[in-house]
Design a protein around this nucleic acid. Structure first.
Lengths: 335, 335
DNA sequence: TTCGCCCGTCGAAGCGCTTCGACGTCACGC
DNA sequence: GCGTGACGTCGAAGCGCTTCGACGGGCGAA
């Protein structure tokens, strides 16, 4: 293994000079820097991560806690993880993958052993048991999603409440008077997952404000469940003409079910969704949707964390504004 | 921060004794161990990961390189990643997440800086450019999938060739004489992704051996593509009664397409698949399938790596035997 | 000209842990 | 009764890096 002293000898300087040339924490003459860089290249020097972490008390590693519970849409999680890794690399950091399974112990472990400098948490619940722990940890963290009581913590997410509102408003503008929300699987609400609840709030509030008749139906992530929900909706709200879907897995089977029940999209029924753009675009009838900007969220989360590590103040809450993209699945209410 | 000297003082022993009590690398009297453990608990001691890595030249971290290319099925990747993390934790290791985007540089970086002790690679190509690098690295690695030339490397995967064969044999036993393979997206074959190719080989070999008429069709991972492939198959092989699907994303739309084209599953057409069990079970007509044991592969990969880290010899190739589960989608050939 | 200061570099002191060699003790076998 | 290990513990030497204080030389201000 080639170490910093080897580089120093080769460049004819002291180890500390090599270190400063690398970190830029003290001025180094152009000429010396050149010599050091040449030596590094010739010897193929790579600083030892452990030694660096020990001496600097910075590991340059972030922890990412991914959820693996029922009812979450895996591709979104993955896309998010990838964007976190990519963004972290831009700041010369790596990403340690933790599963929620390990729970609070895992968080405490990687934080206390100084394995990581900071943490990113996904799938935050309204009353997340990890909150007190995060507050007590001496390392910065960012949460994807908003718990009920977020004081002192940094959170970021799509503004799901407004997203729910926008969907309803879009339908209202098109003249629809009876709408329904097909939501996430029941267990997601039971757990008190923040983003799902907020969609419901926004949906309901906007419907009330616009004087629409509305209903909310959780839905399991299976085609069968989608079909049953479609049937139930038509039974309970025969005048239904607008649907908001917040459940990636059933978006396609649900629209299929409606069509098989004799409702054409968008001629008889308008459909909007909150889901990744790729999904909305890939369907037979592309769906008017509010994008789930997982890549942007991941990137912003890393940026927030880096700012905190640098000692900067960051806003406690970052709500990304929803963007509604009109596609073929919505149309004015049939006469 | 509480350190090992604090624990030592509290327990009335030397730091080295604490270390040995923790690692078990030298015998420590029961009584001393008790005192040390008590001290650790009282003080909430956690060994500093960087210091440990520096002194022991072991970071207790594995690198996991995940693919993010077109045509791979994300949930499988995720399930795999989770099983790797879970298995690694059983051996007191953590997992660093790398994307394929960083490529060989990323591998070299984490290996050379001693950030990780060992590596796991997914989505191996037949002629993977990373092979020479892996051979030159001084750290052990395990690849998920088999490259063409794997000498000196450790590989593990489902035995996809046999999986392809089993599917055909199952259909042949049921009396089918004309079969087709609906495969992964074309780009997967273009890249020379090992597992996809092997399925084709097994499928073709078994069909030839059994004297079946057979055809192979790659298929994009979209419902539209599935429909087109279904139409094409019926056009080109009017006598088709058996299909093998090796493409998670189109399994459902493809069977839907067949039914819409007037073929009932399994009355007119038998369908088998190579896919995760959950997917096969979740369809309207549960599909006879060979499971993609991602969890088992991940676990075994970690075990292989741990053995290599311990200095044990491990087999270069580990092929997991395919297990075919009969479900409702296959039946004897219609008379 | 002299003082003070900044620039560029060096040496040394750790960072917190593991590990090696050494040493005292005790039990056992002859 | 004594040599011989095995057992249990200690002290010290690093692991490879960062960082702090110090220092010489050059330059601008006084």
């Amino acid at each position: 293994m080639v170490k910093i002293t080897d580089v120093a000898r080769q460049a004819g300087v002291s180890p500390s000079t090599v270190s400063y040339a690398l970190s830029g924490k003290r001025p180094i003459s152009e000429e010396t820097r050149q010599r050091v860089e040449a030596a590094i290249r010739e010897l193929g020097y790579r600083p030892h991560a452990g030694a660096r972490a020990l001496a600097s008390s910075r590991s340059n590693v972030l922890a990412l806690v991914v959820p693996l519970r029922a009812g979450i849409h895996v591709p979104v999680v993955m896309q998010f993880a990838v964007s976190v890794v990519t963004a972290a690399r831009r700041y010369d950091h790596d990403v340690l993958l933790l599963t929620q399974e390990e729970g609070e112990d895992g968080l405490r472990r990687v934080a206390d052993t100084a394995l990581v400098d900071a943490l990113i948490l996904m799938d935050v619940q309204l009353h997340d048991p990890r909150l007190p722990l995060l507050r007590s940890l001496d390392r910065p963290s960012v949460m994807i999603g908003f718990p009920q009581e977020a004081a002192g913590l940094t959170c970021i997410d799509l503004d799901f409440r407004t997203a729910g509102e926008r969907c309803v408003e879009h339908l209202a503008q098109l003249g629809h008077r009876v709408v329904a929300l097909v939501g996430s699987p029941p267990e997601v609400y039971v757990r008190g997952t923040a983003f799902a609840q907020r969609v419901v709030q926004g949906f309901t509030a906007a419907a009330d404000r616009s004087g629409l008749a509305s209903a909310v139906h959780p839905c399991e992530a299976t085609p069968g469940a989608a079909r049953r929900v479609a049937e139930q909706l038509l039974r309970e709200q025969p005048a239904l003409t607008g649907v908001v879907v917040h459940n990636e897995a059933v978006l396609e089977p649900l629209t299929d079910a409606f069509e098989q029940l004799g409702l054409r999209v968008p001629a008889d029924l308008s459909v909007t969704a909150i889901c990744p753009d790729e999904l909305a675009e890939s369907l037979r009838v592309p769906v008017t949707s509010i994008a789930l900007p997982s890549a942007e969220v991941g990137e912003r989360a890393v940026e927030l964390l880096m700012a905190k590590l640098a000692g900067d103040e960051v806003p406690e809450a970052t709500l990304l504004p929803p963007r509604l993209t009109k596609r073929a699945s919505t149309a004015p209410r049939p006469a």
